[in-house]
Design a protein around this nucleic acid. Structure first.
Length: 463
RNA sequence: UCCCCGAUAGCUCAAUGGUAGAGCGCCCGGCUGUUAACCGGGUGGUUGUAGGUUAGAGUCCUACUCGGGGAGCCA
């Protein structure tokens, strides 16, 4: 008797129909009458369930009828066409073997649970429809990202998780130490003496792999990172987590236009990839999470992304006459309400905003000839907001050094980053894509905690 | 971190400052193919935590914890 998966049964039905097969999985629900019973079985291989039919002739009919939601079983029988309308076929069982019983207090019911409750049982929630779909899509999206870049010759670089620099000052840092925090060794000034710490200096978890990946960019030409990043900010929003994953491509001999071209091509590639490869999951998101999702994503495949400068954006917003809580003013960063207005009301599609004032952007962004803006770009998408932030990098040694001095940065901390500009430095550009934000955009899920298997947020480190 | 709202049975929610309830789940029974199956019965509580006000607190007050919405920071 052939061991099969539910995925195989759905994808190659004719091969298995009217043949004896064996499946193993977890019970989603049991319905029983006096002498016939039904089990919805999910084996983890496929989004949809397999209906098991068992009748009085089954030796352990009573035991099967008492199976609880969550129990693990192996079923042998024949796959037949189903007289019911909700499934094309079903497994007529000749044998049902209990692999793992389930205690009656199993918290997952067949009815809908709130996402807030399911977060408190993160070890069980992947067994629900929504999270099975979310995390299969997460896996698929990771693969799509690698395929996109590797197919285009990009080299995957593992940048360090532990760093000695605070990279661009992008947010609060998690300190990494082996010092005894109750009685740390002290230096002459009475501060903790990091010379005696593991690395002989302060160490932190990375907030970005960008600076490191630039070194590889200037060797391999086109590179990308894809890994975890950590921000110790006390951010309590549906879009922030303390631990998240980021994709950071970097291209040599490329300017801001090339950067936007890559970002647009990538976003469209990812949409097409998940629509093609996970149709059941996407249909589920469309029906139960975000009505209109698929139509919206298809529309984006066909649309050209809008590209406008920060200065143009400010003009549009100023003329809009909308009632903003924060006034629009050249020189101030765009507020969330401004970004949403642009992408959701004015253009109704993804929007690149470029050439921001240098004062509100990072030190490494390339200074424009106007002396007051830098070659930066943010990609704003309806529903999620900022999903990508990128720039052309400052490749001119003196300009970069002077900007760092203006900002009071310690050059010696960035000696190797500056050296990249001395030894064959070329124009180059890249961006950062929040992996979870992309996943939210593609699934319609509205809280980042619900697209991370075991999310870490301020005050929450369960599991 | 700031503003607003919330926390009651395993879950989702009711309860005028006056005896803590319902639906679902779970357990038992019934039902000839079910589809969130259905029908009947039963089970189920330190009302988030710690204080306070009151003759009396789920209800009012304070702090804290966690959650939701918004903002900031950003991906």
């Amino acid at each position: 008797m052939e061991k099969t998966t539910v995925r195989q049964l759905y994808r190659e039905t004719s091969r298995y129909l009217n043949k004896p097969i064996q499946v193993s999985g977890w019970v989603r629900t049991v319905r029983e009458a006096k002498n016939v019973g039904f089990i919805e079985l999910n084996d983890g291989s496929f989004f949809k369930n397999l209906q098991i039919v068992f009748e009085e002739a089954l030796p352990n009919f009573a035991e099967a009828a008492r199976l609880g939601t969550g129990a693990a079983i192996t079923v042998r029988g024949t796959l037949v066409e189903s007289p019911g309308t909700k499934q094309p076929f079903e497994l007529r069982a000749t044998e049902i073997e209990l692999e793992g019983p389930v205690a009656p207090e199993y918290p997952l019911q067949k009815k809908r649970h709130s996402f807030e409750f399911l977060r408190t049982i993160a070890h069980l929630r992947p067994r629900t429809n929504t999270f099975a779909a979310v995390f299969r899509l997460r896996s698929l999206l990771a693969r799509a990202i690698h395929e996109f870049f590797q197919d285009r010759g990009f080299v995957y670089v593992h940048t360090p998780i532990i760093t000695g620099s605070d990279c661009e000052g992008a947010g609060a840092l998690f300190r990494v130490t082996t010092l005894d925090l109750t009685t740390p060794p002290r230096d002459e000034a009475g501060n903790p003496d990091y010379r005696q710490d593991f690395f002989g200096r302060p160490a932190n978890l990375t907030v970005s792999g960008q600076l490191n990946v630039e070194a590889f960019c200037l060797a391999f030409r086109n590179v990308y990172t894809f890994g975890p990043t950590f921000r110790a900010e006390n951010s309590n929003t549906p879009r922030h987590a303390a631990e998240f994953w980021m994709i950071e491509p970097e291209m040599a001999f490329a300017d801001l236009r090339d950067d936007m071209d890559l970002a647009e091509e990538m976003v469209k590639y990812l949409i097409d990839y998940v629509l093609t490869r996970a149709p059941e999951e996407m249909e589920f998101f469309n029906d139960f999470i975000d009505r209109g999702l698929i139509e919206r994503l298809r529309g984006i495949l066909a649309a050209d992304f809008v590209r406008l400068t920060y200065t143009e954006a400010v003009e549009i917003l100023a003329k809009a006459g909308a009632d903003f809580a924060y006034p629009v003013r050249w020189g101030a960063d765009l507020q969330t309400e401004h970004e949403r207005y642009l992408t959701e009301r004015v253009f109704r599609r993804p929007v690149f905003v470029t050439d921001y004032p240098k004062e509100i952007k990072a030190f490494y962004m390339r200074q424009n000839d106007d002396g007051r803006t830098v070659a930066a770009m943010d990609l704003l998408v309806p529903g999620v907001g900022e999903i990508i932030g990128g720039s052309q990098r400052e490749e001119r040694y003196e300009r970069l050094r002077d900007r760092m001095r203006e900002l009071g940065m310690r050059e010696e901390d960035y000696w190797w980053y500056l050296e990249l500009r001395k030894y064959g430095g070329v124009k180059h550009a890249g961006f950062g894509l929040g992996f979870e934000r992309a996943l939210m955009y593609l699934t319609g899920m509205q809280n980042i905690r619900d697209v991370i298997p075991f999310p870490r947020t301020p005050g929450w480190l369960e599991f």
